[in-house]
Design a binder for these strands. Sequence first.
DNA 1: CGAGTATTTGAAGATCATCAACTGTCGTGG
DNA 2: CCACGACAGTTGATGATCTTCAAATACTCG
Lengths: 216, 216
Amino acid sequence: MLCDVRERSICADLSARDMEQVERIMAHRTVPQNKAILKEGEPNDCLYVIVSGSFRLTKYLEDGRRQVTGFLFKGDFFGVRACDESAYTAEALEDSLVCRFPHAFLEEISTASPGIKDRLIARGQTEYHKAQDHIVLLGKKSAEERVLSFIELVGKSVGATADEDGEGRVIPLSMPRQDIADYLGLRLETLSRSLASLKKKGVLRDIGRKSLVLSG
Amino acid sequence: MLCDVRERSICADLSARDMEQVERIMAHRTVPQNKAILKEGEPNDCLYVIVSGSFRLTKYLEDGRRQVTGFLFKGDFFGVRACDESAYTAEALEDSLVCRFPHAFLEEISTASPGIKDRLIARGQTEYHKAQDHIVLLGKKSAEERVLSFIELVGKSVGATADEDGEGRVIPLSMPRQDIADYLGLRLETLSRSLASLKKKGVLRDIGRKSLVLSG
DNA sequence: CGAGTATTTGAAGATCATCAACTGTCGTGG
DNA sequence: CCACGACAGTTGATGATCTTCAAATACTCG
């Protein structure tokens, strides 16, 4: 079975011979909605590539406060760390499919396909830069600015489609409000009010549970 | 000339033969206080390792709001990205010394010393995890909690020393209050008040411009 | 249709920001 | 060596934004 995310992912660097190996070793795995595939503090020895669906990454404070540190979509991957325990929890936002690579296996075939490591470095940097943008968002932006930035980010990640009128861009949302609020460092109610306010101002054309429509 | 950060840094993976190469190619460079060695948006083709001193990483919003996304100390490195422009500005907090490696050079010797790439991957992950902790700090913690977390982070990074009485831990601060505030997503005044409050509560034993003393 | 959950809305309160004045510190030069 | 100026940091009073608690409404699924 072939992923349709191959060209965007690690497999793109593999030779035909290595690909055979991959197809023997790797495992596709379905992850039901809200099920964790990786848990903060638990050991992890695999890299996961998202074939379809989406995930949230979360971290918890000792007292239970939860922060969503990122959302991942098709083609993204997580679980890079080769050693000890995971720094975050990864949960499916919807029924999803991932491709699983043991680190040991990656290490092995990377001697033949060193491009794999370059991919990991580059992707690591991309994630780091996204985290920095997130930091700017949390450190310096107002509630409404955060919400707008989030919508644009999702739009870029999953792609926006034109709505019926051809006037607006539809942004699909696979996550509930609470996840968005926890990503933005806001309370549910503040997120809701910010969305309402953006709609009143005409920035948002429509607010749905599973999608938003941006004006223009 | 040999760095005393060698074992903590990329050079640790190099063979003796590669080290000769490194000593020919690499350049030590001094960076005066408040001078940027990397600027957000400008191209960069080198990796820098901090030999002595410290740096702040900053990002700016279009309207000038500044966010400090991280502080780096001896042994840390920045400028990993092999391509296009830098995602952040790196400025010296004090007169500092860095070691400079062109990416092309690293790429070249990594065929002989593949451990270098593993280092870059591992370090990239470490930075990413630090960024995630920063996100939790900004998204979920109160002003005082942020300040305490920051102090503990610096303590871990640069090492705390016992004070005269042997009762407290002295945390050296190489950055001004404004940088700390911009790191914590707070205003100067709020940072100052939080410090004062922590002292009144007995968590801090003393507050100085260039150091803090933690109780216990 | 109805129960349960997700989301929105309302009113009151807390935390942090803002504006302003004050104090402390450091380096310079008389 | 002390006085001065400039900047870094602190403290005070007021206000805005976001949170909290409470209740209403909308949506989903069996």
